[in-house]
Design a protein around this nucleic acid. Sequence first.
DNA 1: GTCTATAGAAGGATAGAC
DNA 2: GTCTATCCTTCTATAGAC
Lengths: 214, 214
Amino acid sequence: MQIPEKDKHTEGIIFEAATRVFIEKGMDGARMQEIADRAGINKALLHYYFRSKERLFSAVFEKIAGQMFSKFAPVMDENLSFEEKIRFFFREHMEILKNNPGLPGFILNEINRNPDRMANLIKGYDVKSIWLHLQKLHGAEFEKYGITKENFPQLITSVVSLSVFPFAAKAIFSVILENMGCHFDDYIEQRKTFAAGFVISALQSGNHDMPRYS
Amino acid sequence: MQIPEKDKHTEGIIFEAATRVFIEKGMDGARMQEIADRAGINKALLHYYFRSKERLFSAVFEKIAGQMFSKFAPVMDENLSFEEKIRFFFREHMEILKNNPGLPGFILNEINRNPDRMANLIKGYDVKSIWLHLQKLHGAEFEKYGITKENFPQLITSVVSLSVFPFAAKAIFSVILENMGCHFDDYIEQRKTFAAGFVISALQSGNHDMPRYS
DNA sequence: GTCTATAGAAGGATAGAC
DNA sequence: GTCTATCCTTCTATAGAC
């Protein structure tokens, strides 16, 4: 069942080309011919290795999505305070996205096109277990900040939104920012610390205006 | 140059059907046949009224995008304090999106596919004029909160991210939230006040940890 | 203005030689 | 394992009758 070296090589080249094309164009917009061209081979080989466009796409999507989500988990296990974890998350996560700015759009577009694919993607990343895990580690901080089981989903989705959305909307943001004399990459670099400070400020606010809906 | 009543009627029906299909499937995934079916007419009529798929799509996109962005402007002119405007924005803007949850994904997908289209879309909505406008109205509050020309883009993009991203990622969020026993619509309803409070808390934080990069 | 029928092109997939 | 050639379906777009 060992795959010869050369096969693996070609398969890898195809996979890489397909990844780039699918990220740029999405499943519907991508063309097998373009993937073949970028891989420097011809269409027939695509089908030889991956059977169909759908299977090729699935392979690419699962790899990308898996990588993307797997970056979330380690952060949660670091030996850091909750506040430090927030800073850590924005710094590391946005750095990854900075090097792969097309990923958010690719994922969002696809799950919108085919919501069923989510089932496989989610398993092991439910908010409930993250909540239990963090609550155990940072109970004291959570109490201080007024983080409860009820508002935790709001908090964590806010963190993700602040980090991911600028990349999903990069095409808009970069144009708008230029009008103000600010380049997108600089904006992102600043944002790593801004967003972390923003979230922590909200949590720390002395007046405890941090929403606690019941 | 007056269009007969019946023409306008058919054209409107086509336009409406096209809007729904394009929002669901995107430009690449949409099929003229499906638009015709939903409009209850046949394909040839689509071309009679709109010449080509591309033109039909452009018409739909421009209308949708125009509506979407035009909702931002009025908020800025209301006779409210800056803090009240933030609450107002989240309440009204998220209510609109709640009734049209597919819009963010549609816009994001298309500007990613065709960034050039942004040029037309942006004119009149640059951050700089928004900044000047708000700075004139709320100079005192801005000083108190430490809002500067430099961090204003970070602030405003944060507000938009907190509001829009949950809808763009609805397919993911709704599944994840269900695991925690929370329905998406409830989450959104709570979010109108949570996000507003979150932003205002960050601004008000007594320790003035609100980032001010220079 | 609206329909049927069809042209014409493009794209996914396969057959078969090497 | 890789190529050329080609099949077949799908889709946009148009011609032409009513």
